[in-house]
Computed example of a mutant assay.
Amino acid sequence: MFQYALKVALSAVVIVAVAEIAKRSSLWAAALASLPLTSILAFVWMQLDGEPPSRIASLANDILWLVIPSLLLFIVLPVLLRAGWAFWPSLLLACLATVAGYGTVMWLLARSGSGP
């Protein structure tokens, strides 16, 4: 239970830190948000839980492929906002584009025998 609480607390600290830093500097907030902290924490928790290195390597490889479609969020959102769209519809459409990108990459990986 302690490990679960620690995971939640660390995640909350990172999210709050990014939001607070963004009030002063979007560049520094972006630098913190772009760090693969979630991935690093997942690797550490897996290691501490006794997962074999092959499972950690598999997760790292899968994350690599799914980073590509996640970039759609950071392309679509600013384009829509700069085009004058309101925030919530822009965020929704950017999220939908990202979900579609994930689906496409997962489908392609499954077809190639590399995915789930």
Rank of each mutant, 00 (worst) to 15 (best):
A5D: 13
A5Y: 13
A5W: 13
A9D: 05
A9Y: 04
S11V: 11
A12M: 12
V13I: 15
V13P: 09
V14S: 08
I15N: 01
I15S: 11
V16N: 04
A17Q: 06
A22T: 03
K23D: 13
K23N: 14
R24Q: 14
S25W: 08
S26H: 14
S26M: 12
S26W: 09
L27G: 02
L27V: 14
W28Q: 15
A29V: 12
A30G: 15
A30M: 12
A31F: 15
A31G: 14
L32T: 12
L32F: 05
L32K: 12
A33I: 01
A33Y: 06
S34P: 01
S34Y: 15
P36N: 11
P36L: 07
P36H: 02
L37P: 00
T38D: 01
L41E: 09
F43Y: 05
F43A: 01
V44H: 07
V44M: 01
W45Q: 02
W45P: 04
M46L: 15
M46V: 01
Q47A: 10
Q47T: 08
Q47S: 14
L48I: 05
L48C: 07
D49E: 15
D49F: 08
G50W: 10
E51T: 03
E51F: 04
S54N: 13
S54L: 13
R55M: 12
I56H: 05
I56N: 05
I56L: 02
A57G: 12
A57E: 12
A57V: 09
S58D: 07
L59D: 07
N61I: 01
D62F: 02
I63R: 07
I63W: 00
L64R: 01
W65D: 03
W65Y: 14
L66I: 07
L66T: 08
V67C: 02
V67W: 09
I68F: 12
P69T: 03
S70I: 11
L71S: 00
L72G: 02
F74Q: 06
F74K: 07
F74L: 06
F74G: 12
I75R: 02
V76R: 09
L77W: 05
P78S: 14
P78Q: 15
V79I: 15
V79R: 13
L81I: 10
R82W: 02
G84V: 02
G84N: 03
W85M: 04
W85G: 07
W85K: 10
F87A: 12
S90G: 06
L91F: 00
L92N: 00
A94M: 09
C95N: 05
L96F: 14
L96C: 14
A97C: 08
A97E: 04
A97I: 05
A97M: 03
T98Y: 05
V99Q: 04
A100Y: 08
G101S: 11
G101V: 00
G101E: 08
G103N: 04
T104V: 11
V105S: 13
V105H: 11
